[in-house]
């Protein structure tokens, strides 16, 4: 599977990432919680990986509840 199929969403903290997890679950958007890729941030926490085509829907459903630090292609 090529990396371009996925995007990762970075948050301020693990707490924020897990809040995002709850919001995505509520919307039925598929995701996986993964360690933050080293090339994106030196932080030791986790981020959320989503299928690239879900980017806009995910961004929209998270906008109300949690601060997004950035969204990057994997």
């Amino acid at each position: 599977m090529s990396g371009a199929e996925y995007q990762v969403i970075l948050f301020d903290s693990v707490n924020a990432a897990l809040l995002a997890e709850k919001l995505l679950k509520r919307e039925g958007i598929p995701f996986k919680v993964i360690p933050v890729p080293r090339h994106l941030s030196s932080d030791c926490g986790v981020c959320i990986r989503i299928p690239a085509h879900e980017r806009e829907r995910a961004k929209h459903s998270l906008a109300k509840g949690v601060h997004i630090q950035g969204i990057h292609a994997l």
Partner: peptide, 20 residues
């Protein structure tokens, strides 16, 4: 909870988050 990216750490953080 929330100190590593491994699945047990995430699960521990998740349980704390559920209480929140």
């Amino acid at each position: 909870p929330g100190r590593s990216g491994h699945s047990l750490s995430v699960q521990a953080a998740r349980e704390v988050m559920d209480t929140r």
